[in-house]
């Protein structure tokens, strides 16, 4: 299977305001292949979001090697990283992060504004199709604040998938939802990711969510170790 992202000995250190160094990641090794469904679990504040930012080309490692589709990320200019990110990565956030004041459809259209060619010119059509896929075609003209949490996250999933990314990164996608809604949203994410053949990396606290993954890692003291996939506790 094609290797999408690979991390070798990746560290991430930030400088705190009092001039002390905080070593968030101390040496992470990970290889992500297309079609992977991976869960990352770990305590709050252990650096999961930091890891996800690196995978999604939003951040650069302090040291170590990070390659994206074979290209060492460090060699890419920030504009090139942005373009690659737009093409190949889709984010789903815990707080949905929909653009306020814009309809569901406009939100889904947003990533296509940064695309070229037919993806840009046919953006509304494409966005409408994917909204239909997440079952929200009828709510296309609704503003986010009129949608339920589960619906908002489905719009966010549609937005993450609208450019057919190879890699979907979900940072606690069910964190703001109740268990049942979370379960159905996660099932949807899992299905659409499988359909498109993309790799899905999910950060989660929820064992039911982790249970859907095909591989599981635990992040602890800055290193990533394989963990057993927890058995789902169906409510």
């Amino acid at each position: 299977m094609e290797e999408l992202v690979s991390l070798k000995g990746v560290t991430r250190t930030v400088l705190l305001p009092d001039d002390q160094e905080l070593h968030i990641l101390r040496g992470v090794d990970l290889a992500v292949h297309s079609g992977d469904h991976t869960a990352v679990i770990g305590r709050s504040g252990c650096g999961k979001s930091t890891l996800l930012n690196l995978l999604g080309l939003l951040d650069l490692p302090t040291s170590g090697e990070l390659t994206f589709q074979g290209t060492p990320v460090r060699q890419l200019h920030s504009n090139a990283r942005a373009k690659l990110r737009g093409e190949a990565v889709g984010f789903v956030f815990q707080q949905f992060n929909l653009l306020p004041g814009r309809t569901a459809l406009d939100n889904v259209v947003t990533p296509l504004l940064y695309a070229r060619g037919p993806a840009f010119w046919r953006r509304r059509e494409i966005a409408m199709d994917i909204l239909d896929r997440v079952g929200l075609a009828r709510r296309a003209q609704t503003l986010p604040n009129m949608l339920s949490g589960g619906e908002q996250q489905r719009v966010a999933i549609a937005r993450a998938l609208v450019r057919r990314p190879r890699l979907i990164l979900a940072d606690e996608p069910t964190g703001a939802l109740d268990v049942d809604t979370g379960q159905s949203v996660m099932a949807l994410l899992d299905t659409v990711a499988t359909e498109s053949g993309a790799a899905l990396i999910t950060i989660t606290h929820d064992v039911n969510v982790a249970a859907l993954a095909r591989a599981c890692y635990r992040l602890e003291s800055g290193v990533l170790t394989p963990a057993a996939i927890p058995a789902g506790v169906t409510a």
């Binding site: 999604g56 920030s78 504009n79 942005a82 373009k83 984010f91 947003t110 504004l113 940064y114």
Partner: peptide, 16 residues
């Protein structure tokens, strides 16, 4: 600020 962050995470370059 947040909105611009979101746009950037979906591929908007700084030039854009």
């Amino acid at each position: 600020v947040r909105e611009i962050g979101i746009r950037r995470s979906f591929g908007a370059t700084s030039r854009r």
